[in-house]
């Protein structure tokens, strides 16, 4: 009934308004289109180096560095063959060992700690949290010299497990910080209900809490993996041959003489692939994890 009474008036007043809106709407649509165009322009320029790296990787060496640039090349897989002929695989395996291993250890330490800092009662939560985040802010330069000398004394230079353990130290604070912000979103009633039901700590953790924060664990794990996979400073100083990881291998891949751009691009493409793919696939978790880790 109300609708009936109001309807004619609404349409009557809507007609002239509608016409006015179309004119403004067209203007707005043109402006919106221009902004969208600008956005894509900026995005493409920004993304271009990545695209160019991948394209160059598929060019024959003589078309890789030309002036003007070659856009329609005789695409080939030669450079990838050359990269593996230069034995890149062991470096990739070392990188994988150090990143995956350190990520698993970090999560095993960070989840209980973050749990204690968010859901369980503990004294001086702020102090503990502040301590962890401050270790994250401490430059690696502050500890590299003793670390080097101690590893040297223990005969652990150029040892992939030693590097893995150091990555645990680097990534632990950020993982705790991120896990804590995910855990503090778990409704406390659920945990309390489980506790009143007499659930043991392990049950409480594995059956109740962890399933809820699984996306958070994925995000924290991904960030740790990215940092470890891409790390250069420690790897270049503490490893030489047996435990050399991908970033220092890549850095010493070219000496700047002769034609090397296609093969360098191919090696770089392989090196960045795991993290880029993982980052693209888990983009939502990554963004959320970064934002939460940074803000909460």
């Amino acid at each position: 009934m109300t609708t009936d009474a109001l309807a004619p008036r609404a349409t009557a007043s809507a007609r002239p308004l509608g016409r006015r809106l179309t004119a403004a709407g067209t203007r707005r649509r043109i402006r919106g289109g221009a902004i969208t165009l600008l956005t894509w322009g900026v995005v493409v320029v920004f993304f271009f180096p990545v695209l160019w790296m991948v394209l160059t990787a598929f060019k024959p060496e003589r078309q890789a560095a030309t002036d003007p640039p070659t856009f329609l090349a005789d695409w080939t897989l030669d450079s990838f063959g050359k990269v593996f002929a230069r034995d890149m695989a062991p470096y990739l395996i070392n990188s994988l060992t150090a990143s995956v291993g350190s990520t698993i250890i970090v999560l095993l330490l960070a989840i209980p700690a973050a749990y204690a800092l968010s859901i369980r009662p503990i004294v001086k939560v702020r102090d503990a949290l502040f301590f962890f985040i401050s270790t994250r802010f401490m430059p690696v330069a502050a500890s590299i010299i003793p670390v080097y000398l101690i590893l040297q004394t223990l005969g652990l230079l150029d040892n992939i497990n030693a590097l893995m353990i150091l990555y645990v130290g680097v990534n632990l604070p950020i993982a705790i910080w991120m896990m804590r912000s995910f855990l503090s979103e778990v409704p406390v009633e659920i945990v309390e209900a489980a506790q009143i039901d007499g659930a043991k700590l392990r049950t409480e953790l594995f059956r109740v809490v962890i399933p809820i924060v699984l996306p958070g664990i994925a995000a924290a794990g991904l960030i740790c993996f990215i940092f470890a996979w891409n790390e250069y400073f420690l790897a270049s100083i503490l490893t030489s041959t047996a435990a050399r990881t991908t970033p220092p291998f890549l850095a010493s891949f070219v000496d700047g003489r002769g034609f090397f751009l296609a093969v360098l691009s191919a090696a770089s493409t392989i090196a960045v692939l795991p993290v880029v793919i993982a980052g693209w696939v888990a983009q939502k978790q990554l963004v959320r994890g970064l934002a939460m880790g940074a803000i909460k």
Partner: peptide
């Protein structure tokens, strides 16, 4: 567009430095 924008953050810094130096 968002995926493309976050990509440079994911690129290994060693690779980024080399590609920029020699290719860009």
């Amino acid at each position: 567009a968002r995926t493309m924008i976050i990509t440079p953050f994911l690129i290994m810094p060693a690779a980024a430095a080399l590609i920029w130096k020699w290719s860009m």
